[in-house]
Amino acid sequence: MNCSDVRDMLESYIADDLTDVESARVAEHLSECATCSATYERTRNLVAGLKEIADAFVPADRFVVPPAYATGPKGGWAWRVAAIAASVVALAAVSALSVPAIARELPLPVAREIGALEERADELQQQVDELTVRLETIDGQEVAIVDTTEGDLSAEESEAVQRLAMDFVRAQYAGDPDALAAMGTDRLKADLAAHPGDYLRAGGDGLTFAQMTEAARTEDGTYLIFVRLSDSGDWSESQYQEDFEIKRVGDTYLVDFMGMDA
């Protein structure tokens, strides 16, 4: 193998895209040829820089998939959200933690939420009419809950799921990946390990649980719950929603999925 052959194969050698035999031959030449060896070092540095680029581009707006118009009538997260909302319609509003006074001015965000759900499924319309408000204590805090119809879950079940979701959010703002992992299934742990930035948040001083649904249970036993949050002092700003899927393993509830909606 001469220098010219080696130069042609150098890129593939660095990218580990050669057969073992080819790779060994290139390595052998590099160990004997100072000129090729210098070229190799230079190219390898460039390639190392190139390889670091991709992971550093964080799209400012997350890509929304599936897009609303592509969502089929069956299967998929969006459909299940709509189906659960239609069958349970247990929208609750919770203000907790810092509870700015304005957060008491319910159910405006609830109406907004229902509007969003209505866009996902028309049949929600007739089922989201009546709202009643009651006060409940969740996780040691008195919270306002806006409830439409009764769910099919026991109070203990629903509260356990709600509490887990709230604890998860608090751990997100505490920036505590270990606590998050301890509350998650293996699936969530893997996603957390791969994308910690999707889960960890900073600056939760103004964290407010603006609104939370009752927990609902799907046919396969998964619990769904949506939490609407505000993470700034101004309650009307920086609101978003976290969608949780929660599994029950023995007596323990674990987060299986957390997705964000704007």
Binding site: G75, W77, G259
Partner: peptide, 15 residues
């Protein structure tokens, strides 16, 4: 038909 799984794929590949 698991849209969540697709969403995770998107998260793995989007950058």
């Amino acid at each position: 038909g698991d849209a969540r799984a697709f969403t995770m794929l998107v998260r793995h590949h989007e950058r």
